[in-house]
């Protein structure tokens, strides 16, 4: 069903060409603004000599750990809090207190307790990612149509069966939304924590390249990071589309032209 993204690719190509031309014409500014061809060549170089790959691996590992841990913890917690009102009431003020605080603010405190190693970065990532997942999961469970729950009751479903066959599927679109949002957040926090204090990882690498004025390499690494982010997003969308095909069908916008 995917149409060939001809226009999109054309515009992308156009932007690259524009980049190339403007950079070459920029005179002295070319130091800050290397042409696309140079950036891509540099990208190939740093990929080839393994330097970039090391940093990518370090970042991806932290990302994966943080994201997976956050997903496991937050979905479980969200389901519990969504299903049991008294439990939610217990934690609600705490949640409302912590929630508005921007997650990067936990970096200093994490450094304090966990030092400057991987543990700190993963911990910060887990904290930050957990929020969208937790909140969306709670919302998803609480927003389940009472008619569905009544249906489960009239069919005399046991609690575990009801959870598995009604609650979980009904809440899953919302849960997936939370998972999608925290994907981006995980990347942000990993990158940030690497910029603030680290000696490896893409965040560190990019900042370091800027400081040592290796500008083409800096751009090349950012391109790599963009591609990774894009790929992760696409991967997520594919899994999402496959697992939630029913929901897509239900909410498909009719294209009337």
């Amino acid at each position: 069903m995917a149409r060939f993204p001809g226009k999109g690719l054309a515009v992308l190509l156009g932007c690259l060409v524009l980049w190339e031309v403007l950079a070459r014409r920029s005179g002295a500014l070319v130091l800050y603004f290397p042409p696309a061809s140079q950036v891509l060549a540099t990208l190939a170089a740093i990929l080839g000599n393994g330097e970039l790959l090391d940093h990518i691996a370090a970042s991806l590992l932290r990302f994966a750990e943080g994201y997976a841990l956050a997903a496991a913890l937050a979905v479980s917690a969200g389901l519990c809090l969504g299903l049991w009102r008294p439990l939610y009431a217990l934690f609600e003020p705490l949640i409302e207190l912590l929630r508005p605080m921007p997650s990067p603010a936990t970096i200093p405190i994490a450094i304090l307790f966990l030092g400057i190693g991987d543990q700190m970065k993963v911990a910060v990532t887990v904290y930050a990612c957990s929020w969208p997942i937790l909140l969306n999961t709670i919302d998803g469970v609480r927003a389940i149509d009472p008619v569905l729950l009544n249906t489960a009751a009239t069919f005399r479903l046991g609690p575990w069966e009801r959870f598995r066959k009604v609650v979980l599927p009904a809440a899953s679109p919302q849960i997936v939304t939370g998972l999608r949002v925290s994907l981006a957040i995980a990347l942000i926090l990993v990158t940030t924590s690497e910029m603030v204090v680290s000696n490896d990882g893409l965040g560190f690498y990019i900042l370091d390249l800027q400081r040592s004025f290796q500008i083409p390499e800096m751009y090349a690494s950012i391109v790599a990071l963009a591609v990774i982010g894009y790929a992760l997003n696409r991967l997520f969308l594919t899994l999402d589309g496959w697992a939630l095909a029913w929901h897509k069908g239900l909410t498909r916008k009719e294209e009337i032209l």
Binding site: A184, L187, I188, V190, T191, T192, M195, L202, G203, I206, L207, S221, I222, L225, A226, V227, I228, G229, Y230, L232, N233
Partner: peptide, 8 residues
Amino acid sequence: AIPPPAII
């Protein structure tokens, strides 16, 4: 897809 900190 670029994490904003990378733009810094």
